[in-house]
Amino acid sequence: MGVRGGARLYAAVAVRGFRRYATYRVATLAGVFTNTVFGFVVAYTYTALWSVRPRLGGYDLPQAVTFVWLGQGLLMATALLGGGNESELVERIRSGDVAIDLCRPANLQLWWLATDLGRAAFHLVGRGVLPMAAASLVFRLAWPSGVAAWGCFLVSVALGVVVSFAIRYLVALTSFWLLDGAGVLLMAALLATFFSGMVLPLTVFPGWLGTLARALPWSAQLQVPADVFLGRHRGTGVLWALAFQAGWAVVLLGAGQLVQSVATRKVVVQGG
């Protein structure tokens, strides 16, 4: 039983997370539409920028445009503008409903990780594929060169989701102390938007700011998967990129477990 039973439980939770979003078809279509329109606007902006500064950040034009569409495609999956399921957790902490979650023989973090993976899987398909397909009709995109490259990209996206979740989970836990989590969530969303590379690829930033930005965990959410997609790593470089993401995932999930155990021991579950 042990680990296998646990894995089956969390798999069931993830499937449920997926299905839950799958019921909102209209919202998904509206999202795809917005992503696509936005993608076009940003792609043309990048085109203008790259025609003035060719090879900016080390990307040629097709790579830069592909970067834009990857940003739109991963927007929901790795929660580049925030907005995964953490606001729900914040609400449960605030209302005290988290008491119910804590009464279950399951790890709170793994539980929410599982729901978030389900959510991300849905958004990767529901919100990722269509905008990319639309873009490929209009723009010249830089595609991965083979099955192995696609595989590495998917692994990288999965790790990006985990890192993204781990950060958002930590942020959500602060509401055990602050009770009103809205401000912190907004702050975290802003950091993610910039440091993931959503505003501009992080390779564009020179000097220490660029170095710092690329070393921070948010880069695992877009910059790293995009570079894997674009094949910018040679040989074992890809493995290092994935290891970078995995390292952050482990560190941040571990931090989450730690904060979680402090939060549930020292802090009060609200409500009667």
Binding site: M1, G5, R8, L9, A12, V13, R16, R104, P105, A106
Partner: peptide, 11 residues
């Protein structure tokens, strides 16, 4: 489905 999930939670 809720009950089914409960079944998995408590094995």
């Amino acid at each position: 489905d809720s009950y089914e999930l409960v079944r998995r939670i408590y094995r």
